[in-house]
Simulated assay, not measured.
Amino acid sequence: MSAAQPSRFDTTSEARHLPSRGQPHFRDSIVVLEDVTELACRIDRSIMTLRHAGILDRARAIVLGEFVRCPLPAGVDYSLADVLLDVLAPLGVPIYGGLPLDMASAICRG
């Protein structure tokens, strides 16, 4: 068995192009997800698009980086972590979150 390779995917900008001939595949990969200034509902929809397209089916693990300025609707009693776990848990792979990958922060700094 080969070692898992990390794959970075900007959830919303990439998912809107699916399905296509050039769609990514994450077989035996560790998928890194993070985003900046995106609504939580759009992140949810983008990840669901990836799931329904089968793109995440053979990933070995999911790593959640930073989700900077990704607001939830006002007055809700759940967090973005709850949303992410809800859509990713059915994959049945390890999910690691809160990792300071600093890519999102670097984007914000310009």
Rank of each mutant, 00 (worst) to 15 (best):
M1E: 11
M1W: 13
M1I: 09
A3S: 12
A4Q: 01
A4D: 04
P6C: 08
S7F: 15
F9Y: 13
T11H: 03
T11A: 15
T11E: 02
T12I: 15
S13N: 14
S13C: 12
E14R: 13
A15H: 00
H17T: 14
H17R: 13
L18Q: 03
G22M: 11
G22Q: 13
F26T: 02
R27S: 10
D28V: 03
D28Q: 12
D28R: 06
I30S: 04
I30F: 10
V32Q: 09
V32A: 08
L33M: 08
L33V: 08
A40M: 06
A40Q: 05
S46H: 05
T49N: 09
L50S: 04
R51W: 03
H52G: 04
H52W: 11
G54H: 04
I55L: 05
I55V: 12
L56Y: 03
A59L: 03
I62M: 02
I62S: 00
I62H: 01
V63E: 03
V63Y: 03
V63L: 08
V63D: 01
V63R: 02
L64Y: 00
L64M: 07
G65N: 01
E66N: 04
F67V: 04
F67C: 02
V68Q: 05
C70L: 04
P71K: 08
L72E: 05
P73V: 11
P73F: 06
A74T: 13
V76I: 11
D77G: 13
D77Q: 15
Y78L: 05
L80W: 06
A81G: 07
V83T: 09
V83D: 02
L85P: 00
L85G: 07
L88F: 07
P90C: 07
L91W: 04
L91C: 07
V93A: 04
P94L: 11
P94M: 09
P94Q: 06
G97P: 01
G97Q: 08
G98C: 05
P100R: 09
P100C: 08
L101S: 04
A104S: 10
A104C: 05
A104Y: 05
I107Q: 02
C108Y: 08
